[in-house]
């Protein structure tokens, strides 16, 4: 039987799914950020992955692989009648970075959420999106409204291009999150109209 599969909104009143990835270090507030604007309580999905074990297994059953589950939190926002935006929080732990490829594929852009007290926790995310060519913005989570570091200081520490927007936000506050998402899409538009590729 011919299987029915379509891309985007090419038939009838079908919804078109789009996504934005929210990355950053463990505990930086990704799920809070997603929950502040999602129309559903953020849900958690698990993927089962196989990874090489570290050689600490007491029981060696002749295999060097172990099964691990990795959890991803996500939210959903209906935009207009025919668009639905999914927000994906990346798994925080470094050893799950390979999952980011699947998350980033097809994303219109990304948010790198930063806690300036542990700024190094976001380096991996920035490296990843830069290499992949995914448009991203940096959002400094101010946690209770305190700006501990100025924009130039943050930009200097992250060594990012001048074209990458840096914003401050309180990840618990809906309008702040909305402003960050607007910045992501505007940045993606700039990139698209200036001809820079997204893979």
């Amino acid at each position: 039987m011919e299987s029915s599969r379509s891309e985007g909104n090419s038939e009838g009143n079908r919804l078109t799914p789009v996504k934005i990835v929210v990355a950053g270090g463990f505990g930086v507030g990704k799920t809070t950020f997603v929950g502040a604007i999602s129309e559903i309580e953020p849900l958690r999905s698990e993927a089962i992955i196989t990874e090489a074990s570290e050689g600490i297994d007491e029981l060696d059953l002749g295999t060097s692989k172990t099964m691990t589950t990795v959890a991803m939190d996500f939210g959903r926002i209906s935009l207009k009648h025919d668009l639905v935006l999914y927000l994906f929080g990346t798994p925080g732990q470094d050893r799950f970075h390979f999952m980011w490829n699947e998350l980033a594929r097809g994303a219109i852009g990304a948010v790198v959420l930063v806690d300036t007290r542990r700024i190094e926790a976001c380096f991996a995310a920035i490296d990843f999106f830069e290499k992949r060519g995914t448009p991203f913005v940096v959002a400094v989570n101010t946690f209770h409204g305190r700006r501990l570091h100025g924009e130039q200081e943050v930009r200097g520490a992250l060594q990012i291009a001048a074209s990458v927007p840096i914003l401050y936000c309180d990840a618990r506050v809906r309008v702040d999150v909305q402003r960050v998402l607007v910045a992501v899409v505007e940045h993606a538009l700039d990139r698209a109209t200036s001809g820079a590729g997204v893979s």
């Binding site: 891309e7 985007g8 909104n9 799914p17």
Partner: peptide, 8 residues
């Protein structure tokens, strides 16, 4: 049936 996300 499945709707894939649009190509970026």
């Amino acid at each position: 049936s499945i709707t894939d996300p649009p190509a970026t």
